[in-house]
Design a protein around this nucleic acid. Structure first.
Length: 273
DNA sequence: AGCACCACCTGTGGGC
DNA sequence: TGCCCACAGGTGGTGC
Protein backbone atom coordinates (compact mmCIF):
# COMPACT_ATOMS: atom_id res chain seq x y z
CA UNK A 1 0.00 0.00 0.00
CA UNK A 2 1.88 2.96 1.22
CA UNK A 3 4.94 4.66 -0.14
CA UNK A 4 6.74 7.62 1.43
CA UNK A 5 3.93 10.18 0.93
CA UNK A 6 1.26 7.95 2.45
CA UNK A 7 3.41 7.21 5.51
CA UNK A 8 4.24 10.90 5.88
CA UNK A 9 0.55 11.85 5.74
CA UNK A 10 -0.14 9.35 8.49
CA UNK A 11 2.82 10.62 10.52
CA UNK A 12 1.61 14.22 10.32
CA UNK A 13 -1.94 13.28 11.26
CA UNK A 14 -1.00 10.99 14.11
CA UNK A 15 1.66 13.09 15.80
CA UNK A 16 -0.69 15.63 17.43
CA UNK A 17 -3.23 12.89 18.18
CA UNK A 18 -0.78 10.57 19.94
CA UNK A 19 1.56 13.02 21.61
CA UNK A 20 1.80 12.62 25.40
CA UNK A 21 -0.73 9.80 25.50
CA UNK A 22 0.09 6.85 27.74
CA UNK A 23 -0.22 3.27 26.49
CA UNK A 24 -2.39 0.80 28.40
CA UNK A 25 -2.42 -3.00 27.93
CA UNK A 26 -2.05 -3.90 24.22
CA UNK A 27 -4.28 -6.49 22.51
CA UNK A 28 -2.36 -8.80 20.18
CA UNK A 29 -5.05 -10.24 17.91
CA UNK A 30 -2.28 -11.66 15.68
CA UNK A 31 0.93 -11.98 17.70
CA UNK A 32 3.13 -12.60 14.62
CA UNK A 33 2.51 -8.96 13.68
CA UNK A 34 5.16 -8.14 16.27
CA UNK A 35 8.53 -8.71 14.64
CA UNK A 36 10.49 -7.84 17.79
CA UNK A 37 10.65 -8.58 20.67
CA UNK A 38 8.47 -11.59 21.60
CA UNK A 39 4.74 -10.95 22.18
CA UNK A 40 5.01 -11.24 25.96
CA UNK A 41 7.92 -8.84 26.16
CA UNK A 42 6.13 -6.44 23.83
CA UNK A 43 2.98 -6.53 25.96
CA UNK A 44 4.95 -6.06 29.15
CA UNK A 45 7.06 -3.14 27.95
CA UNK A 46 4.38 -0.92 26.46
CA UNK A 47 2.00 -0.11 29.35
CA UNK A 48 3.01 3.14 31.06
CA UNK A 49 5.07 4.36 28.07
CA UNK A 50 4.14 7.79 26.73
CA UNK A 51 4.37 9.01 23.15
CA UNK A 52 6.99 11.67 22.64
CA UNK A 53 6.98 12.42 18.90
CA UNK A 54 6.70 10.71 15.50
CA UNK A 55 9.43 10.27 12.89
CA UNK A 56 9.80 8.51 9.57
CA UNK A 57 12.54 6.88 7.55
CA UNK A 58 11.42 5.93 4.05
CA UNK A 59 8.29 3.86 4.54
CA UNK A 60 8.99 3.15 8.23
CA UNK A 61 6.93 5.10 10.76
CA UNK A 62 8.81 5.73 14.01
CA UNK A 63 6.84 6.36 17.19
CA UNK A 64 9.30 7.69 19.78
CA UNK A 65 8.32 6.94 23.37
CA UNK A 66 9.59 8.37 26.65
CA UNK A 67 11.63 5.18 26.67
CA UNK A 68 12.03 3.10 23.49
CA UNK A 69 10.83 3.40 19.89
CA UNK A 70 7.83 1.71 18.30
CA UNK A 71 8.39 1.18 14.57
CA UNK A 72 5.64 0.32 12.07
CA UNK A 73 5.89 -0.86 8.47
CA UNK A 74 2.55 -1.10 6.67
CA UNK A 75 3.84 -3.12 3.69
CA UNK A 76 1.00 -3.59 1.19
CA UNK A 77 -2.29 -3.31 3.05
CA UNK A 78 -1.44 -2.26 6.59
CA UNK A 79 -3.47 0.56 8.10
CA UNK A 80 -3.17 2.62 11.28
CA UNK A 81 -6.38 4.09 12.65
CA UNK A 82 -6.74 6.43 15.61
CA UNK A 83 -10.03 6.03 17.46
CA UNK A 84 -11.12 8.82 19.84
CA UNK A 85 -13.75 6.44 21.25
CA UNK A 86 -11.27 3.57 21.37
CA UNK A 87 -13.27 1.38 18.99
CA UNK A 88 -11.84 -0.30 15.88
CA UNK A 89 -13.54 0.41 12.55
CA UNK A 90 -13.66 -3.25 11.56
CA UNK A 91 -12.74 -6.51 13.23
CA UNK A 92 -12.02 -8.80 10.29
CA UNK A 93 -8.45 -7.72 9.55
CA UNK A 94 -7.62 -6.24 12.94
CA UNK A 95 -4.13 -7.43 13.99
CA UNK A 96 -3.23 -5.23 16.96
CA UNK A 97 -4.99 -2.76 19.24
CA UNK A 98 -3.03 -0.27 21.32
CA UNK A 99 -5.36 1.39 23.81
CA UNK A 100 -4.29 4.49 25.73
CA UNK A 101 -5.09 5.12 29.39
CA UNK A 102 -7.52 7.91 28.44
CA UNK A 103 -9.85 5.54 26.52
CA UNK A 104 -8.67 6.41 23.02
CA UNK A 105 -6.73 3.85 20.95
CA UNK A 106 -4.48 3.21 17.98
CA UNK A 107 -5.51 0.19 15.87
CA UNK A 108 -3.46 -1.70 13.29
CA UNK A 109 -5.32 -3.68 10.65
CA UNK A 110 -3.84 -5.50 7.68
CA UNK A 111 -5.66 -7.68 5.17
CA UNK A 112 -2.60 -9.37 3.72
CA UNK A 113 -0.73 -9.73 7.02
CA UNK A 114 2.59 -8.46 5.66
CA UNK A 115 2.84 -5.47 7.98
CA UNK A 116 5.09 -5.62 11.04
CA UNK A 117 5.92 -3.69 14.22
CA UNK A 118 9.16 -3.53 16.16
CA UNK A 119 9.74 -2.27 19.68
CA UNK A 120 13.33 -1.29 20.38
CA UNK A 121 14.85 0.28 23.47
CA UNK A 122 17.38 2.58 21.84
CA UNK A 123 18.16 4.36 18.60
CA UNK A 124 21.17 2.06 18.16
CA UNK A 125 19.00 -1.03 18.46
CA UNK A 126 16.51 0.46 15.98
CA UNK A 127 19.35 1.00 13.55
CA UNK A 128 20.91 -2.45 13.85
CA UNK A 129 17.71 -4.45 14.08
CA UNK A 130 15.32 -2.67 11.74
CA UNK A 131 17.03 -0.08 9.58
CA UNK A 132 20.35 -1.80 8.94
CA UNK A 133 19.64 -2.19 5.22
CA UNK A 134 17.62 0.96 4.77
CA UNK A 135 19.27 3.85 2.95
CA UNK A 136 18.85 7.58 3.58
CA UNK A 137 15.33 8.99 3.36
CA UNK A 138 14.99 10.18 -0.21
CA UNK A 139 12.98 13.28 0.71
CA UNK A 140 14.62 14.49 3.91
CA UNK A 141 18.15 13.05 3.94
CA UNK A 142 19.32 13.59 0.37
CA UNK A 143 20.45 16.89 -1.06
CA UNK A 144 21.03 17.23 -4.79
CA UNK A 145 24.77 16.56 -4.47
CA UNK A 146 24.24 13.51 -2.24
CA UNK A 147 21.74 12.08 -4.70
CA UNK A 148 24.00 12.56 -7.70
CA UNK A 149 26.91 11.02 -5.82
CA UNK A 150 24.88 7.96 -4.83
CA UNK A 151 23.64 7.60 -8.41
CA UNK A 152 27.21 7.57 -9.64
CA UNK A 153 27.98 4.55 -7.49
CA UNK A 154 25.22 2.57 -9.19
CA UNK A 155 26.02 3.22 -12.82
CA UNK A 156 24.96 -0.19 -14.11
CA UNK A 157 21.56 -0.26 -12.40
CA UNK A 158 18.37 0.26 -14.35
CA UNK A 159 16.55 3.34 -13.09
CA UNK A 160 13.33 1.64 -12.07
CA UNK A 161 15.17 -1.09 -10.22
CA UNK A 162 17.40 1.41 -8.45
CA UNK A 163 14.62 3.73 -7.30
CA UNK A 164 12.74 0.78 -5.83
CA UNK A 165 15.85 -0.33 -3.93
CA UNK A 166 15.32 0.89 -0.36
CA UNK A 167 19.02 0.39 0.37
CA UNK A 168 19.90 2.99 -2.26
CA UNK A 169 17.43 5.50 -0.90
CA UNK A 170 14.33 4.92 1.18
CA UNK A 171 10.78 5.86 0.31
CA UNK A 172 10.07 5.30 -3.38
CA UNK A 173 7.52 2.64 -4.32
CA UNK A 174 6.01 1.41 -7.55
CA UNK A 175 3.53 4.23 -8.18
CA UNK A 176 5.76 7.22 -7.42
CA UNK A 177 8.69 5.64 -9.27
CA UNK A 178 6.68 5.39 -12.50
CA UNK A 179 5.42 8.95 -12.07
CA UNK A 180 8.92 10.34 -11.44
CA UNK A 181 10.43 8.55 -14.43
CA UNK A 182 7.62 9.85 -16.64
CA UNK A 183 8.03 13.40 -15.42
CA UNK A 184 11.75 13.29 -16.07
CA UNK A 185 11.32 11.65 -19.48
CA UNK A 186 13.42 8.61 -18.60
CA UNK A 187 12.57 5.08 -19.72
CA UNK A 188 12.37 2.75 -16.69
CA UNK A 189 14.80 0.31 -18.34
CA UNK A 190 17.57 2.87 -18.89
CA UNK A 191 20.78 2.44 -16.91
CA UNK A 192 22.25 5.21 -14.77
CA UNK A 193 25.43 5.24 -16.83
CA UNK A 194 23.45 6.02 -19.98
CA UNK A 195 21.77 9.13 -18.54
CA UNK A 196 22.56 12.21 -20.56
CA UNK A 197 23.70 15.56 -19.25
CA UNK A 198 21.00 17.07 -17.07
CA UNK A 199 18.80 13.97 -16.86
CA UNK A 200 20.01 13.02 -13.38
CA UNK A 201 19.16 16.48 -12.08
CA UNK A 202 15.81 16.37 -13.83
CA UNK A 203 15.11 13.10 -12.06
CA UNK A 204 16.13 14.53 -8.70
CA UNK A 205 13.76 17.46 -9.17
CA UNK A 206 10.94 15.19 -10.34
CA UNK A 207 11.34 13.01 -7.24
CA UNK A 208 11.09 15.98 -4.90
CA UNK A 209 8.14 17.43 -6.74
CA UNK A 210 6.13 14.24 -7.04
CA UNK A 211 6.66 13.21 -3.41
CA UNK A 212 5.81 16.70 -2.15
CA UNK A 213 2.65 16.79 -4.29
CA UNK A 214 1.69 13.33 -3.10
CA UNK A 215 1.91 14.47 0.52
CA UNK A 216 0.10 17.73 -0.24
CA UNK A 217 -2.82 15.81 -1.73
CA UNK A 218 -3.11 13.31 1.10
CA UNK A 219 -1.37 10.39 -0.61
CA UNK A 220 -2.59 8.01 -3.33
CA UNK A 221 -5.50 5.63 -2.84
CA UNK A 222 -5.27 3.19 -5.71
CA UNK A 223 -6.96 0.35 -3.85
CA UNK A 224 -6.66 0.03 -0.10
CA UNK A 225 -4.85 3.04 1.30
CA UNK A 226 -6.66 5.00 3.97
CA UNK A 227 -5.23 7.71 6.22
CA UNK A 228 -5.36 7.50 10.00
CA UNK A 229 -8.93 8.83 10.01
CA UNK A 230 -10.10 6.27 7.45
CA UNK A 231 -10.29 8.78 4.58
CA UNK A 232 -9.06 8.27 1.00
CA UNK A 233 -6.06 10.06 -0.50
CA UNK A 234 -6.49 12.38 -3.49
CA UNK A 235 -3.29 12.09 -5.50
CA UNK A 236 -4.61 9.23 -7.68
CA UNK A 237 -6.47 11.77 -9.81
CA UNK A 238 -3.14 13.45 -10.60
CA UNK A 239 -1.23 10.35 -11.66
CA UNK A 240 -0.04 10.80 -15.24
CA UNK A 241 0.91 7.21 -16.15
CA UNK A 242 0.39 4.75 -13.28
CA UNK A 243 -2.76 2.69 -13.83
CA UNK A 244 -3.42 4.41 -17.17
CA UNK A 245 -2.64 1.62 -19.65
CA UNK A 246 -4.03 2.40 -23.13
CA UNK A 247 -5.07 5.90 -22.07
CA UNK A 248 -3.47 8.70 -24.05
CA UNK A 249 -0.43 10.45 -22.66
CA UNK A 250 -0.52 14.25 -22.99
CA UNK A 251 1.55 13.74 -26.17
CA UNK A 252 -1.28 11.65 -27.64
CA UNK A 253 0.53 8.29 -27.51
CA UNK A 254 -1.21 5.45 -25.63
CA UNK A 255 0.47 4.60 -22.33
CA UNK A 256 1.97 1.12 -22.22
CA UNK A 257 2.27 -1.38 -19.40
CA UNK A 258 5.20 -3.78 -19.12
CA UNK A 259 7.14 -5.57 -16.42
CA UNK A 260 10.34 -4.05 -15.07
CA UNK A 261 12.13 -5.20 -11.93
CA UNK A 262 9.31 -7.68 -11.44
CA UNK A 263 6.71 -4.93 -11.09
CA UNK A 264 3.91 -3.70 -13.32
CA UNK A 265 5.36 -0.62 -15.01
CA UNK A 266 3.52 2.15 -16.83
CA UNK A 267 5.29 4.49 -19.24
CA UNK A 268 4.88 6.54 -22.38
CA UNK A 269 6.96 5.02 -25.21
CA UNK A 270 7.25 8.40 -26.89
CA UNK A 271 8.04 10.69 -23.92
CA UNK A 272 10.34 8.24 -22.14
CA UNK A 273 13.33 7.27 -24.24
C1' DA B 1 26.67 -5.97 -8.69
C1' DG B 2 22.57 -6.92 -10.89
C1' DC B 3 18.55 -9.37 -11.57
C1' DA B 4 14.95 -13.10 -11.90
C1' DC B 5 12.17 -15.86 -9.15
C1' DC B 6 9.77 -17.40 -5.03
C1' DA B 7 7.59 -16.69 -0.62
C1' DC B 8 4.71 -14.35 2.50
C1' DC B 9 -1.17 -13.41 2.38
C1' DT B 10 -5.97 -12.18 0.89
C1' DG B 11 -9.05 -10.09 -2.26
C1' DT B 12 -10.57 -8.57 -6.72
C1' DG B 13 -11.20 -8.00 -11.57
C1' DG B 14 -10.78 -9.53 -16.24
C1' DG B 15 -11.14 -13.20 -19.52
C1' DC B 16 -13.41 -17.12 -20.98
C1' DT C 1 -23.43 -16.53 -13.99
C1' DG C 2 -19.37 -18.72 -12.41
C1' DC C 3 -14.62 -20.22 -12.32
C1' DC C 4 -9.67 -19.52 -12.69
C1' DC C 5 -5.73 -17.03 -13.02
C1' DA C 6 -3.05 -13.02 -12.78
C1' DC C 7 -2.09 -9.30 -10.28
C1' DA C 8 -1.93 -5.84 -6.25
C1' DG C 9 1.27 1.11 -2.97
C1' DG C 10 6.52 -4.29 -0.25
C1' DT C 11 10.38 -6.80 1.19
C1' DG C 12 13.70 -10.69 2.07
C1' DG C 13 16.01 -14.85 0.66
C1' DT C 14 18.12 -17.75 -2.86
C1' DG C 15 20.65 -18.64 -6.73
C1' DC C 16 22.62 -17.63 -11.21
Amino acid sequence: MPELPEVEVIRRELEPLLKAREFAEPLLHMPSTIAHPGPEEFAAFLPGRKVDNLGRRGKYLLIYLDRGILTVHLRMTGNLFYAADGKAREERFLRLSLPFTDGTALHFSDMRRFGRLWLTETEAELQSLVLNRVGPDILTDLGREDFLELLGKRGHSRLKHLLLDQGFAAGMGNIYTDECLFRSGINPNRRVIDLKEGESEKLYRAIREVLAEGIEHGGTTFRDYRNSRGALGNFQSRLLVYGRKDECCRCGTPIEKTRVAGRGTYYCPRCQK
